[in-house]
Amino acid sequence: MTHTKISMAQALNQALRDAMHADDTVVMFGEDVGALGGVFRITDGLTAEFGENRCFDTPLAEAGIVGMAVGMAMNGMRPVVEMQFDAFGYPAFEQVVSHVAKMRNRTRGRVQLPMVIRIPYGGGIGGVEHHSDSSESYFAHTPGLTVVTPATVADAYGLLRKAIEFPDPVVFMEPKKLYWAKEEVDLAEDQPGIGKAVVRREGADATLIAYGPALPVALEAAEVAAAEGRQLTVVDLRSVVPFDDETVCAAVRRTGRAVVVAEASGFASVSSEIVARVTEKCFHSLAAPVRRVTAFDIPFPPPKLEKYQLPSVDRILDAVDDLQWEDS
């Protein structure tokens, strides 16, 4: 039991290192992941430690990277690939949708693809266009994929280890604005599995449902709300697919009110799915319509305008204030 203060980036790096030690078939590849250690340093030192056969740079071609991972997974390896940025993953979209997601079903389970596609995603880092997208809804909409996203340092380690051990392909979305946030963690401590949401804060008045980069904002909003006399539960989805209806709905039923907080644009998104599910399953427990705090339905803005696009504590508190308290 040793608690160390490390960043999410370091935890992800340690997860890769430990997974590669634990299993010789785990290989890591992508753009600049070798000598450089990745543009976010998530693969720092892996080539030096494990050699070029275990962690290697590829040509600049994302469909090729994901397609090669499919073949390697078919032939006994556990590839972990990095899409350098969210929007750089789009060239691989056909491979992801047409093969990664469908191979198991196509072959009645005879071909399993134990592979992980790591995608640094989301804004808040002052990135140029194509470096700040929230692309999780595309993947969540595709049957056959498993989509997870950590919001804490401990989960970054725990979920990545579980994703690499998972028998099926996992899209592993890394909130890049949280890469450098440090926490005291014990990496040996077991974390809940893929498919489990976690209640990060208990409160009787309303539930905030968040994931990935939106979670710290939701927690901060709950802190402020508490100071103002309103107790909020905060649920961290962790796993977008499979979706943990049980934990989410239990929280909503306990509190009777809910706000979904997500960094992605709201239209036809994970956040709209959550609202639909909660409304269908918890209607009689709801004292107010489920509200959302999401990005606008616009392309991710340039750095000097991104603050208008990202969910904020104030927007969350305003949404909570809007939950028809006067009627109850």
Binding site: V27, N53, A63, G64, V66, G67, M68, A69, V70, G71, M72, A73, M74, N75, G76, M77, P79, E94, Q95, S98, H99, M103, R106, T107, V111
Partner: peptide, 23 residues
Amino acid sequence: PQSTPLATQLPHAVGVAHAARLK
């Protein structure tokens, strides 16, 4: 499996071959 989307099976072929070589 027979690939319906054109040429998408070719990167898989490379992956199978590369994995074999590593093994």
